[in-house]
């Protein structure tokens, strides 16, 4: 387990370095640079050149790259180009908000979708087609709804018509109850699609496992259906489910960008949208690296869980 974790960790570092490198050079390939973006059309050629010197943009590209790496490692992300605020401070306020939304969504998704999917699988296994079709059909329908659309519908219904949740307002972690109330609707929007996807994946995985020989063996030893389902079937079906949970984290991050924008929540997503709109290279570059880091870390933990669940997994 230890060697395995170490190997995975090593891979994580290599992958992250790859992403950082890719992001750095891709952004340098785009016509125009940070200085001209910052200056807009106000500066003359000479002044622009001075600005470039100041920002270190005139140094050889490899030197710039290594300086950038050094800064990243020492957690010095620099300032935003447009507003001059410290990117480190911005991240510090935005990351907890987005993380809270993402984690709440995943927890809610797992709590609802896995029992639901397992139930559907069990019904299908026992030949109760109608109920299974109902669950599976609904899940399919929900899965097809794009999140920006559900976001608007939920906003209209729960916020504007029923007035259950606020649609806007301050977001602060200092008041936990108000904070949860504020992020409840975005979490719901994100969860609905996730639940539908996960329930379908769970159903398929559990249904496949239920016809395995070892399930019959468990039954032959006199275990109740409930224990067979949760101790044997779900434990074996967990492998594909965990994989999908890990992968769906990517689409979840995607989703946070949209819902944060719609619900005006100052998380990473809003920061990214603002950064792109104002062509703030420095900010966008840092955010991409952070998103990538999130994604890679989740995969790392997925692998660890996978190894924990299935003793057969090698490297």
């Amino acid at each position: 387990m230890l060697t395995y974790s170490f190997n995975r960790l090593l891979q994580l570092v290599v992958t992250t370095l790859g992403v950082v490198t890719l992001v750095f050079f891709t952004l340098r390939l785009i016509p125009g640079d940070a200085a001209s973006a910052m200056a807009g059309e106000t500066l003359s050629g000479e002044a622009l050149d001075r600005l470039r010197d100041q920002m270190g943009l005139n140094k050889p590209i490899l030197i710039q790259y290594f300086e950038y790496l050094r800064n990243l490692v020492s957690l010095n992300f620099g300032d935003t180009i447009t507003t001059g605020l410290s990117i480190g401070d911005l991240l510090l306020t935005a990351i907890p908000i987005t993380l809270a939304i993402a984690v709440a969504t995943i927890v809610l998704t797992i709590i609802i979708s896995i029992p639901l999917g397992t139930l559907a699988a069990y019904l299908a296994h026992k030949g109760h087609k109608t109920l299974d079709n109902l669950i599976t059909g609904t899940a399919m329908l929900v899965d097809l709804m794009p999140s920006f659309w559900t976001a608007l519908v939920f906003l209209l219904l729960f916020s504007l018509t029923l007035g259950l949740f606020p649609a806007s307002g301050t977001v602060s972690l200092d008041e936990p109850v108000a904070f949860l109330h504020r992020i409840a609707l975005p979490v719901l929007v994100l969860s609905v699609t996730q639940i539908a996807t996960m329930a379908r994946i769970t159903r398929t995985a559990v249904l496949e496992v239920l016809s395995e020989d070892y399930i019959r063996t468990a039954r032959s030893m006199g275990w109740s259906e409930l224990r067979v389902l949760f101790r044997h079937a779900l434990k074996n079906a967990a492998l594909p489910i965990v994989t999908v949970v890990g992968l769906s984290f990517g689409s979840l991050l995607n989703g946070t960008i949209i819902v944060e924008f719609i619900f005006t929540i100052p998380g990473l997503g809003s920061l990214l949208v603002n950064g792109i709109n104002s062509r703030d290279y420095q900010l966008v570059q840092t955010l991409i690296v952070f998103y990538a880091l999130f994604f890679v870390s989740v995969n790392f933990f997925t692998d660890l869980v996978y190894k924990r669940l299935d003793p057969r997994v090698q490297f």
Partner: peptide, 20 residues
């Protein structure tokens, strides 16, 4: 099941739970 009647199945490769 199990206590009064024991059952042995055909394929030993698939009849035991692989993750337990």
């Amino acid at each position: 099941r199990g206590s009064e009647v024991g059952t042995i199945f055909q394929d030993p490769m698939s009849s035991l739970d692989p993750v337990m």
